[in-house]
């Protein structure tokens, strides 16, 4: 696949209380965001394991992001802070093996921020389009 019509595959791990609710709100607000983003619901971003992020990259995701509650407002107190640490760890790991760390990101938003959810999806899709297909992905095969 050439980069001209490159449509990235992005996995978004969203917490049930904020990011997933914001995605729901974005839908009821009739906001449009790129279909490249595939949402996986988690009870809390604290449930995100380094393994899940790496596995998504290994499976061929061009971008992966974790979206949780605003810092200090996590429904489960500190899950989002733990998730941020793990995202940072994965970024470092990817850099070491020669994959752009920007492919993995952590975002924070509240359940009332439907438009922010769409904005993040746009932002991430644009970022990955600029980076091009993941070297791990099936696009290059």
């Amino acid at each position: 696949m050439t980069t001209d019509n490159f449509e990235p595959q992005i996995v978004a791990f969203c917490c049930k209380y904020c990011a997933y609710a914001a995605a729901d709100l974005a839908g009821s607000m009739r906001l449009s965001y790129p279909p490249n983003v595939k949402v996986i619901q988690l009870p809390c971003t604290g449930r995100v394991d380094i393994l899940h992020l790496l596995k998504a990259v290994e499976d061929g995701a061009d971008g992966v992001y974790v979206a949780g509650c605003l810092e200090g407002e996590c429904h489960f107190l500190k899950g989002n802070l733990r998730a941020r640490k793990k995202v940072n760890y994965v970024k470092k790991t990817l850099e070491e093996i020669g994959i752009e760390p920007e492919r993995v990101e952590m975002f924070n938003l509240s359940s009332a921020m439907g438009s922010r959810f769409a904005e993040i999806a746009n932002e991430m899709t644009q970022r990955i389009k600029d980076l091009g297909p993941s070297p791990v992905g099936t696009h290059n095969v």
């Binding site: 996986i40 899940h52 596995k55 099936t138």
Partner: peptide
């Protein structure tokens, strides 16, 4: 929300 379930979701997204 077991590891297997979460990984199965990402696998399903990229499965040929």
């Amino acid at each position: 929300f077991t590891d297997r379930q979460i990984i199965a979701k990402t696998d399903a997204l990229f499965c040929e």
